[in-house]
Design a protein around this nucleic acid. Structure first.
Length: 206
DNA sequence: GAATCGATGATCT
DNA sequence: GATCATCGATTCA
């Protein structure tokens, strides 16, 4: 069941929990279709969350986090990686969920090509176990920033491609929380959510 | 397997 | 000029 805009209107922690086990599907000209089961995410809050790009209020980069939920927020980091988020609600509060790891479903070969790996030899974790790897495997870059992730809006292909999320098609995942990875501020906040049984996690839970 | 470190550029102070 | 929601190569074991 593809999710609609109302799904993302909740707060980022609620949406993050609900996205563990959901399926992310990407369609783009040339790359075709690829999908994966989400096994690791992180929630980021609004101006009050020191670890969030929204901390302290909107900037040109983070402006999209302050807008309507259900849009992709893609940013470039460490000079070489992209990260994919989905903007959440509640209205007027700014928040997002970072997609950190998947388990490949469709289009695994294409993922391996984009990652520069041998599809027959590489492990799933090396393909899509980490936020930068997810974006490289799916071909997501800054051109995808602002594209809708919701079923209705994304039924019209965007310039860069199409992003959709589906929930409920897979058995319900076990979900555990731990601390967000790579953040210095608010390091003790347990807003990383993952399926501890997955072999694709960027790191095991604490 | 675990620890360390350099790459590389947008963003913000 | 420092920081960074990362990754992969290298080192040591």
């Amino acid at each position: 069941m593809y999710v609609g805009r109302a799904f993302f209107a909740a707060d980022p922690v609620t949406v993050a929990r609900a996205l563990v086990g959901a399926v992310l599907e990407v369609t783009a000209p040339g790359t075709g279709r690829a999908s994966g089961r989400i096994v690791e995410v992180e929630a980021y809050g609004g101006p009050d969350d020191p670890a969030s790009h929204a901390a302290g209020g909107p900037t040109p980069r983070s402006a999209i986090m302050f807008g309507p939920p259900g849009l992709a927020y893609v940013y470039f980091i460490y000079g070489m990686h992209h990260c994919l988020n989905v903007v959440t609600g509640p209205a007027g509060s700014a928040g997002a969920v970072l997609i950190r790891a998947l388990e490949p479903l469709e289009g695994r070969d294409g993922m391996a090509v984009r990652r520069g790996l041998d599809p027959l030899r590489c492990r799933d974790r090396d393909l899509v176990g980490g936020p930068g790897r997810v974006c490289q495997a799916l071909g997501i870059d800054l051109a995808w920033n602002g594209l809708p992730v919701t079923a209705r809006a994304s039924s019209v292909p965007g310039v860069a491609g199409r992003l959709r999320l589906a929930v409920g098609g897979e058995p319900r995942s076990r979900v555990v929380s731990s601390c967000r990875i790579g953040v210095r501020r608010a390091a003790e906040v347990p807003w990383r959510f993952c399926d501890p049984d997955s072999a694709c996690l960027s790191r095991p839970p604490d």
